[in-house]
């Protein structure tokens, strides 16, 4: 087992008149090698939640276990936790600060107190994982394109060699090309490196395509936790939370409503195409 969250509560401004639940009794376990999607409208608590998983925020009550150990126990090594549970913030390129790409990626492993050779080996490995070759090493990170900058920032976290990678809207503000590049790299890390991925995104289409499990947050509470196909069946409830299902889900349900006989758990274009073609041939 990997990450376990038990009765997690987070209250902002505790003890004042403005106190407000940001997280309310959240429970789940994420196993090694899962690809979990985390959705919820702005302010639903999902950003607060992920910052608990690497100890950047401390819960008001409840516990977080990483590999069976309570991270709030006395003497628990938070720095080590942060290297194992890598967190890529929204617009991560805003954290770049070094004169060249390579030094910036070295920052994380250097903070872990590793030897120079090991630091550089990790930086090289991380950059190759995000698809940036040696020609980028000496470039200033500030002169790259938006998508490239973001990949450097992700490499900066990967160089810590995390077991779990959490990404907060890693494609925000990118064009379709930049978006596909990032998502393909993430999915590759999951497939080839067996990395546990927790992806926060607003795009239901991306969730349908990549995530094996979907956790839906609303007003600080976990409301759904299931395979994307199952979650999207509740598209009406999702809408009430200011969310939506992939467009394809709507097409499929409308077809069913009018009497067409196709399955109700189709979420991608390819699935819907095959099902509609099969149904038309049968009919």
């Amino acid at each position: 087992m990997s990450i376990k969250v038990e009765h997690l509560n987070h209250i902002y401004g505790e003890g004042t008149a403005f106190s407000q639940y940001a997280l309310k009794d959240v429970n789940f376990t994420i196993e090694d090698g899962e690809f979990v999607g985390l959705i919820g409208h702005t302010g639903s608590g999902k950003s607060t939640l992920i910052q608990h998983l690497n100890g950047l925020l401390r819960a008001s009550s409840g516990a977080v276990y990483y590999n069976g150990e309570n991270i709030y126990a006395d003497g628990y090594d938070m720095k080590k936790l942060r290297s194992k549970v890598g967190l890529v913030f929204q617009y991560p390129e805003y954290q770049l600060f070094e004169v060249d790409v390579f030094s910036d990626v070295c920052f994380g492993p250097r903070n872990l107190g590793l030897e120079k050779e090991e630091v550089e080996a990790r930086a090289r490995e991380a950059l190759s994982l995000v698809g940036l070759d040696e020609s980028f090493y000496a470039q200033s990170p500030f002169e790259l394109s938006g998508g490239q900058k973001r990949r450097v920032a992700i490499a900066g976290v990967l160089a810590m060699e995390p077991e779990v990678l959490i990404l907060d809207e890693p494609t925000a503000g990118l064009d379709p090309r930049g978006r596909d590049e990032i998502l393909d790299k993430i999915s590759q890390l999951h497939r080839e490196k067996g990395m546990t991925i927790i992806l926060v995104s607003h795009s239901m289409e991306d969730m349908a395509r990549y995530a094996g499990r979907l956790i839906v947050m609303n007003h600080g509470e976990k409301v759904f936790d299931d395979a994307p196909k199952e979650v999207f069946k509740h598209y009406k409830e999702l809408e009430k939370m200011g969310l939506a299902a992939p467009q394809i889900t709507y097409v499929v349900h409308e077809l069913r409503e009018h009497g067409a006989e196709i399955a109700d758990d189709l979420t991608t274009v390819a699935e819907a195409r095959d099902a509609i073609l099969a149904a038309l041939r049968k009919g």
Binding site: K236, Y250, H253, E254, R256, E257, H258, G259, I276, L280
Partner: peptide, 27 residues
Amino acid sequence: TRRELMENLLPLFGCRYGERKGGEHVD
């Protein structure tokens, strides 16, 4: 749009757009 797709796809299933049969509703 979804509506256009429905208007063109449903006749192939032998249905007409707007004539709902199932218990489901799409808003």
